[in-house]
């Protein structure tokens, strides 16, 4: 049973390293498409959007990949051109500490409250 407690930590650890798997080019393309937001159909990724602009953006992504740019560099390029808004994956920086941290904080806090409650009830 003890191992269960450590599972989240183990998985967090692995999920950090897991992104290094070698993907085929088209899979990588689709992954990038899904992470970029379309400026014309603002609710959709360029993968889902059918707008002309999304098609052009897809072409640019393909060109960049062909020219040897990495996934990360492509995101940086688009963020540079259009602002951070364009990426569906928010960066972890001063602006987003709360975004990333608050849920985990709530989880820990909730855990503490529940443990205390259990301890109280047990006695």
């Amino acid at each position: 049973m003890k191992i269960i407690k450590f599972l989240p930590i183990i998985f967090l650890y692995f999920s950090l390293f897991s992104s290094f798997s070698n993907e085929k080019n088209s899979q990588l393309e689709n992954k990038i498409f899904k992470n970029l937001r379309c400026i014309i159909c603002q609710g959709q990724s360029i993968y889902d959007s059918q707008s002309d602009f999304a098609e052009s953006m897809k072409l640019v992504v393909k060109q960049k990949l062909d020219s040897g740019m990495s996934e990360e560099e492509i995101y940086i390029f688009f963020k540079d051109q259009y602002g951070e808004w364009i990426s569906y994956d928010p960066e972890f920086n001063a602006k987003t500490y709360f975004l990333w941290g608050l849920p985990v904080l709530i989880f820990l806090l909730g855990g503490a409250i529940i443990l205390r409650k259990l301890a109280v009830l047990k006695n």
């Binding site: 602009f53 640019v60 051109q81």
Partner: peptide
């Protein structure tokens, strides 16, 4: 022709 040049500039329309 295909809109890629303007994306290099950061335009969207």
């Amino acid at each position: 022709k295909n809109g890629t040049v303007s994306i290099q500039l950061g335009a969207y329309g």
